[in-house]
C-alpha cells in the first residue's frame, strides 16, 4: 500500500501547504472513523503490519495518547520514544536519530519537537511518512484539523464562520495551524490577545487583529481559547496570570454580553481561572471534550490517508479491508 499515492503526499508537516480540498478530504475521512471508537471491539485491520514510531522530544500526554489510540485502533505496531529516555538526551543529533529510525525500516514517524521546522527537517531526510505532532511555534496540523472537525460538527459548516483565536498567538503552533486551515476552508479568522503575544506581521496572514477580548466576543461565532503557559509570565510577556484573567480571560460574565451563543474550544491542557473560567469550560457551549474525541478520529484519518488510503474507500476499509 506504500506504492499507492497518498492524497496528502508523503508527510503531514503542516496545513499551510495543503489545499482546501485536501483538508476537506481529511475531515470527511475522519467521519466514518469516529464510529470505530464507539464499538465494543475498537480495532480494524487498516494498518495491519505497519510500524509506527511516536517520537516525542517534548512532554505530551494528550497528543501522544491520542495518536497511540488512533494507531492501535487501526492495528499498527507502535513504539513510543520519549526524549528523556532516549539517546537524544545523550547528545545524539536529530539527523542521527532519523537515520537510526530509518535503518529499522519503520513506516511512519509521529514527531513532536521543540524546534520549529523539525518535522520538515525529518521529512526531508527519511523516506517514511512523517506526521508533525507539533514543532516549536510552527504548526500542529492534527490539532488544527480536529478543531475544524469539531467546529464543523457543531456549526454544520466552516465556510463563512467567524472564528477568533484568543491568547498567546506568538508562541502557538495551534494558532498557526488553525489560521492556515480555517482560512482555506472559507472561515473568517481573528486573533486576540495582548500585543506582546501577537507576532509581527500576523495581520498579513489574512486575519483580523483584536486587542480586547470583549471585541472578540462581539465579533465571533467560535472562540478557540489557547493555554497561557506559566513561562510566558516568567519571561515578562504578561505581568501576572491574575491580570491576564481579568483582562483577557473568557468568563461567563463576558459571554453573557455576546449577541449570540459562542462555541468554545480549547486545545488543552487548560489553566482554569487563567485563560478560561471553569463555568465556561464546563458550560453548555464548551466542546472541549468533543475535541479530544475527534482527535482520535482525525489522526486515524491522517494515518489512513498517508498510508495510501483513498477517502472514498474509508468506509469499506474499516469494515475489514486494508487501506
Amino acid at each position: 500500500m506504500n506504492q499507492m499515492t497518498s492524497p496528502l503526499g508523503k508527510d503531514l508537516v503542516g496545513l499551510e501547504r495543503l489545499s482546501g480540498q485536501q483538508i476537506r478530504a481529511i475531515l470527511d475521512t475522519a467521519e466514518p472513523f469516529k464510529e470505530i471508537s464507539e464499538r465494543r471491539i475498537k480495532k480494524v485491520p487498516v494498518l495491519r503490519g505497519k510500524t509506527i514510531v511516536n517520537l516525542f522530544f517534548e512532554a505530551s500526554t494528550r497528543t501522544r495518547v491520542s495518536f497511540e489510540f488512533a494507531e492501535k485502533r487501526l492495528s499498527a505496531d507502535t513504539v513510543n520514544i520519549a526524549a528523556a529516555s532516549s539517546s537524544v538526551s545523550k547528545g545524539e543529533t536529530l539527523v542521527d536519530t532519523a537515520r537510526n529510525l530509518e535503518a529499522m525500516r519503520i513506516d511512519m514517524v509521529v514527531m513532536r519537537h521543540g524546534s520549529s521546522g523539525a518535522a520538515r527537517f525529518l521529512a526531508d531526510r527519511i523516506p517514511s511518512n512523517v506526521i508533525n505532532a507539533g514543532d516549536g511555534w510552527h504548526e500542529h496540523p492534527t490539532q488544527g484539523l480536529l478543531d475544524m472537525l469539531t467546529i464543523r460538527d457543531h456549526m454544520g459548516r466552516l465556510d463563512g464562520l467567524k472564528v477568533c483565536i484568543v491568547g498567546d498567538i506568538r508562541h502557538s503552533r495551534v494558532a498557526r495551524s488553525n489560521i492556515y486551515g480555517l482560512l482555506k476552508m472559507g472561515a473568517e479568522v481573528a486573533v486576540c490577545g495582548p500585543q506582546t503575544l501577537l507576532p509581527q506581521g500576523i495581520g498579513d496572514l489574512g486575519v483580523h487583529v483584536l486587542s480586547r477580548v470583549e471585541d472578540a466576543i462581539q465579533w465571533a461565532d467560535v472562540l478557540n481559547v489557547l493555554r497561557l503557559q506559566l513561562e510566558r509570565m516568567q519571561a515578562g510577556y504578561v505581568p501576572s496570570l491574575r491580570e491576564y484573567n481579568r483582562i483577557w480571560g473568557v468568563s461567563t460574565a463576558r459571554l453573557e454580553r455576546a449577541p449570540r451563543d459562542l462555541l468554545i474550544l480549547h486545545p488543552g491542557p487548560m489553566n482554569r481561572g487563567v485563560e478560561i473560567d471553569s463555568d465556561v469550560a464546563d458550560g453548555p457551549h464548551s466542546v472541549i471534550l468533543n475535541q479530544v474525541t475527534n482527535g482520535v478520529a482525525v489522526r486515524m484519518a491522517v494515518l489512513y490517508l498517508l498510508a495510501g488510503g483513498q477517502p472514498e474507500k474509508a468506509e469499506a476499509a474499516k469494515q475489514g479491508g486494508e487501506a
Binding site: 499551510e16 516549536g136 498557526r176 509581527q200 498579513d204
Partner: peptide, 15 residues
C-alpha cells in the same frame, strides 16, 4: 529577521 516570514515559520525574530 522579524516579520511575516518569521511569523509564518514560527521562528523567533530579531527586529
Amino acid at each position: 529577521n522579524e516579520g511575516l516570514v518569521s511569523t509564518r515559520l514560527g521562528l523567533p525574530g530579531k527586529p
